[in-house]
Simulated scan of single mutants.
Amino acid sequence: MAKSQWWVYMIKTQSGKLYTGISTDVARRFKEHRGELGANKGAKFFRSDAALKVVYQEACVDRSTASKREAEIKKMQRYQKLQLVDSSGLINA
């Protein structure tokens, strides 16, 4: 069985907050956060502030590496997270 690719991602909310998480399928996870794949599949974080768009993705070799990177990003100050988003060129936040 092939190993799944793990991703660290950031989602911007309607109010401008940044949420950081990990997944093997960022597009599916984003839909879960938006409630498109059934109730209560997304993070509680989005219940009062809807997910707007994925603004950052970073590939990791395994779940452990993704979890460690997620923790690093969560410890960053907002301006550092925004720099990371800007440097990725993924989406204009």
Rank of each mutant, 00 (worst) to 15 (best):
D49S: 06
A66Q: 07
T13N: 11
A59K: 15
R69P: 00
Q57F: 01
Q83V: 10
R34P: 09
S67Q: 14
Y9V: 00
N92P: 08
A71E: 15
K74M: 12
R63T: 02
T24P: 11
E72F: 04
R69T: 13
L37N: 09
T20L: 02
I73T: 08
L84M: 15
I22P: 06
D25L: 01
A50M: 05
A93W: 07
A43Y: 01
G16K: 04
E58S: 10
R34Q: 15
A39I: 05
Y9D: 11
K41M: 03
G35T: 12
R28S: 07
G21R: 00
K44M: 09
W7M: 01
T13Y: 01
A2S: 14
E72S: 12
G89A: 04
F30M: 03
R63P: 08
R29V: 00
Q14N: 12
Q77L: 13
Q5H: 09
D86I: 03
I22S: 00
L82S: 01
T24K: 11
H33Y: 00
I91V: 13
S87K: 12
V85D: 07
A66D: 08
C60R: 14
L18C: 02
A51H: 02
I73G: 05
E72Y: 03
A93L: 05
T20H: 05
R34H: 03
E58L: 07
S87R: 11
V55K: 01
L84E: 13
M10W: 11
H33Q: 02
R29D: 07
G38A: 10
E32I: 00
S4N: 14
K81H: 03
F46Y: 11
G16A: 03
K44T: 06
S67W: 13
A2P: 15
I22F: 03
A93Q: 11
E58P: 02
Q80I: 08
K74H: 14
K75E: 15
S64M: 11
T24W: 06
R78T: 10
R69F: 02
W7F: 10
A39F: 02
G16R: 02
Y79V: 12
A66Y: 13
G42D: 09
G42S: 06
R28A: 04
S64F: 08
G42W: 01
I11L: 08
S88E: 07
A27S: 13
N40P: 00
A66R: 04
I73M: 13
A66T: 10
R78E: 13
G21D: 09
L18A: 01
V85T: 07
R47S: 12
K81M: 15
K31V: 00
T20D: 11
S88G: 09
K68C: 03
C60V: 05
V26Y: 11
Y9I: 00
V26H: 13
V61Y: 12
F30K: 04
